[in-house]
């Protein structure tokens, strides 16, 4: 699923400027957590094409994303990072979006539209 489609589905606005290349990048899976140690633990395959959905909008989210070679974060529940964190994301080339949906809603709607989890689509 392309990044721009994910943004539309989640009614999410870009926090950092995103180039056409970022908008058209394809993502195969999503992982949702407010716990960064779980992101570090569970996202083991293809982190580059996994979008992180989180309500934790601080520098540790970006550091986690940096360590994992992920590049796309959607903040839910209206959470918004500080100017410092936004600057860090710019330097790292990480795309960040903000959505007012809850984590449950964001995951539900993406899953319904065909984006799987890190283990694919395990439910009927």
């Amino acid at each position: 699923m392309r990044a721009v489609e994910i943004a539309e589905i989640l009614q999410a606005a870009p926090i950092t400027y995103w180039e056409e290349e970022d908008r058209n990048r394809d993502y195969e899976a999503a992982f949702a957590s407010d716990l960064m140690s779980d992101v570090l633990m569970f996202v083991q395959t293809n982190p580059e094409t996994t979008v992180l959905i989180t309500g934790l909008a601080n520098a540790q989210t970006l550091r986690t994303v940096e360590m994992m070679d992920m590049r796309f974060v959607v903040f839910v529940r209206g959470k918004f990072p500080s100017d410092e964190t936004i600057e860090l994301a710019r330097n790292m080339g990480i795309t960040m979006l903000a959505s007012d949906l809850t984590m449950f809603e964001a995951c539900g709607v993406l899953y319904q539209k065909g984006l799987g989890g890190i283990y694919g689509s395990r439910t009927a």
Partner: peptide
């Protein structure tokens, strides 16, 4: 609050 402290740190480092 930083997104850590769930008791997964050392096990993950070991893994």
């Amino acid at each position: 609050a930083m997104g850590f402290g769930a008791g997964m740190g050392l096990p993950n480092i070991q893994r």
